[in-house]
Nucleic acid binder design. Structure first.
Lengths: 336, 336
DNA sequence: TTGTAAGCGTTATCAA
DNA sequence: TTGATAACGCTTACAA
């Protein structure tokens, strides 16, 4: 292992001088810098990051917490997109990205506190927060800097989010404008704030149209195709059945397609569907899926940016909201 | 910051004793252990990982290298699956997972060498190797332990792979058994070894059936829907046109669907399609896609397992091959 | 502009 | 069974 001492010896300077060259200090003469740099190159020297972090008290590493049960966390296209957005920033800002995967909320909290307390990460990015999120409270307690992707409830929180209420409002309004009156909501787990917000938007749109919200038309399940299918079957067995379904996630919407096909219903003639996320395959399915497109990658960018700001003493805004957009395709029809 | 010294003071022992308790050394008396543990708990003590790594010369961190251009690397469902497999193992074996994302081969090599030389990671997992992969050579040169997911060419390499040649052979044989004679291959970039292997299996199957390989029926492109569509259009414009297409990736196969629909061709009546990977949405598209299912998650498990073995002085097998399976759905028809 | 020396929080060596 | 003491490789006063 070649250390700073080896470089110092070869360049005929002291270790501290090498360290200063490493930091490009302006208190080192140009000729010395060059000599030291040549020595570094010759020895193929890389500074030991652990030693440096130990003393600077910064690991330059961000932790990304994947807390949802693995199957839905990984298979949902939301995940690669947000990851890509985050890694773009960490890479360009010379930060590292550590993945923290957990199976349940208890383990999640343990792991996160440990990662931070052990100085492995300088801060964390959390996805899909829940109401009264325990993790958020714990992190605040130990002064761990973090950014939440989604609506965060605690005070002193920093978050990146999209306009879920408005987005859901727009989606449901679209269905209303096509003449639908019995619009069902295929929702995810109630505990997630984004599900609550999309529910709110759904209710507001109906209310503004003078239509009461019927609880029999609102269902909750996991963000999976299976649950989407199962719940759709339940929704359509009712009488009078809904003529349209707004799913809070495209993957669930694909489950609607499955259920409709099994029940012999044709989309959009017999049933209209709107999804959420603009999954790459939303345009592939038959008929192509009308869905809300959110700038997931940009949210990842913003989250990483804000966390780094926080770590470097900046003061990012407490909340950063990105706009979504309804992408109209072929899955919605008019009610005659 | 509470350190080992604070714990030592509170428990009335020396720092080295605390360190031994941390390691659960059997040379410490039970009462002392309990006293020290109580002190740790009271102080909410977490050992500083950087300090520990510095002296033990092990970061207990694996690096996962994402080198393909970001768009295809992240959007392909292969990625979340392999990631999940890897993280399952790192989590249970108490290792960390660092993501190394790069945009091009040059940057890829720089980053990887740096991560290892700076002691940020103990070893690396590489995805989708190319022939004469420069990175593999560099890592070997600096003695960086690594595992390749895919077929690796260098000697001394350890790799996890699936039976690509056989899998492609089976897929094409399936089409042959349905009476197809003009079977096109929709291939990915030639430089990837998995593309070469699937090409080999394709050729062998044709050969064994006494059908010459026509270069006009073999196309290369990116592993994207767009390229799948574009190349399919080119394939089908020819005369005589292929009656079946074997795509080396489901995402490309979805592009075939798009092209067919635009050209007014019905799958499977006018065109048969076989994909690769068993993307979660292969069963969703209409008609559902016949595809080769590979145990991606298990490959991730194996890769992480082997790397950890390597790091802990074990001797994993140089190559570990997992079997794939053809999932027959509705996208292939008989030739009349 | 450069060097000396202390210290970051651990583990490891040796002695008691 | 435990405790001093010296590393690990770096940065950073403080001195020169």
């Amino acid at each position: 292992m070649t250390t700073i001492k080896d470089v110092a010896k070869l360049a005929n300077v002291s270790p501290s001088t090498v360290s200063r060259v490493l930091a490009d200090s302006n208190r080192i003469s140009q000729p010395t810098k060059e000599r030291v740099r040549k020595a570094m190159e010759e020895l193929d020297y890389y500074p030991n990051f652990l030693a440096r972090s130990l003393i600077t008290r910064a690991s330059r590493t961000l932790g990304l917490v994947l807390s949802r049960p693995a199957d839905s966390a990984f298979s949902n296209p939301f995940f690669p997109a947000i990851l890509r957005g985050i890694s773009q920033v960490t890479q360009s800002r010379q930060y590292n990205l550590l993945l923290v995967t957990t199976e349940n909320p208890v383990e999640e909290e343990e792991q996160c506190l440990r990662m931070f307390s052990e100085k492995r990460v300088d801060g964390l990015i959390l996805l899909t927060p829940r109401t009264n999120d325990l993790l958020i409270r714990s992190l605040t307690r130990v002064n761990c800097p973090f950014i939440v992707v989604g609506r965060a409830t605690g005070k002193g929180c920093h978050s990146v989010n999209n306009d879920n209420i408005k987005a859901a409002y727009t989606a449901v309004s679209h269905l209303l404008s096509l003449g639908h009156r019995r619009i069902a909501l295929l929702n995810g787990p109630e505990s997630y704030t984004f599900c609550q917000d999309r529910y709110l938007g759904y209710c507001q749109a109906l209310e503004d149209a003078g239509i009461p919200v019927e609880s029999r038309l609102v269902r909750h399940g996991a963000l999976t195709q299976e649950d989407g299918k199962k719940l759709t079957t339940l929704l359509l067995e009712q009488s009078p059945a809904p003529t349209a379904i707004f799913a809070v996630d495209d993957v669930m919407a694909f489950g609607v397609y499955k259920a409709a096909s099994e029940l012999g219903l044709t989309i959009p003639q017999d049933l209209s569907v709107v999804g959420f996320n603009d999954d790459p395959l939303a345009s592939m399915v038959e008929p192509s899926l009308t869905t809300v497109k959110i700038p997931i990658m940009e949210m990842g960018n913003a989250a990483a940016d804000m966390l780094i700001q926080l770590l470097e003493g900046g003061a990012p805004p407490p909340e950063f909201i990105l706009a979504s957009e309804l992408v109209i395709r072929a899955s919605c029809g008019k009610v005659l």
